[in-house]
Design a protein around this nucleic acid. Structure first.
Lengths: 117, 117
DNA sequence: ATCTTACATTGACGGTCATCAATGTGTCAG
DNA sequence: CTGACACATTGATGACCGTCAATGTAAGAT
């Protein structure tokens, strides 16, 4: 469970070039990319993500997100876990609060893949 | 049903800038982006897409994709429809064969959104 | 020690999805 | 006209997902 982040970042840096124009991709790579995209492919998670990136990865506690999106706290917790497991954001527990920050490498990898050049 | 492509391309060009760093996004925009991402968030569809882009949008018939991915023809047809409905690719029927090509604007929009700068 | 706060976990429910076999539809060849 | 081909559609099945209420857990405050 705790190795998902490491795996994601590791595979992200291991991938040399994975553009859509570089020929057909294999089943394994498709599976990995689909996992990241699946984590993104939800309106609520996109909004949660945008709230994190908008605040410059500063103090972001789940209670604020709960109020602003109109969803319950377990739902926020569930979505955050999905984003973390996909390697898109990281979670750092400081005292009682959880601080989230994005993983730029993951987004680089996705943008790289979606690049038709 | 047939207006999905027009809608997708229209909204794609209507969006001025939708980067993740440009502050929290609204529910409507999140919904639209999630639809495109959901179409991408499947291993089989990613592989199908890579086969189209790899051949430079040339002669691509579903039967070839069926053999190479090891899935049945209805499944290929189903996935292709999803990609077309999401506005990621277009379909042109020439005679008996269907020719597919990517919609660069859709990918530009996604890359733009995933850009942390 | 007790209470509050911040978040995780569990269990359940309704909805959506990927896949296939079977069948339908339209197109070209002989 | 008939048969073969390329693809769409339908219906069914098993799996997964988003959401919530209820409950658990761990840390700080009093």
């Amino acid at each position: 469970m705790s190795t998902t982040i490491d795996e994601a970042t590791a595979t992200a840096s291991n991938t040399p070039c994975c553009s859509l124009t570089a020929g057909p991709i294999g089943a394994a790579q498709a599976e990995r990319l689909a996992e990241m995209l699946k984590a993104l492919a939800d309106p609520t998670r996109l909004r949660l993500l945008s709230h994190i990136t908008a605040q410059g990865c500063q103090e972001v506690c789940d209670c604020d997100l709960t109020e602003e999106l109109g969803i319950t706290q377990p739902t926020v917790s569930h979505h955050m876990k999905k984003l973390v497991d996909a390697g898109l954001i990281t979670r750092e527990q400081r005292g009682r609060w959880a601080h989230y920050s994005v993983v730029p490498e993951a987004f680089d990898q996705l943008r790289n893949f979606l690049d038709l050049s």
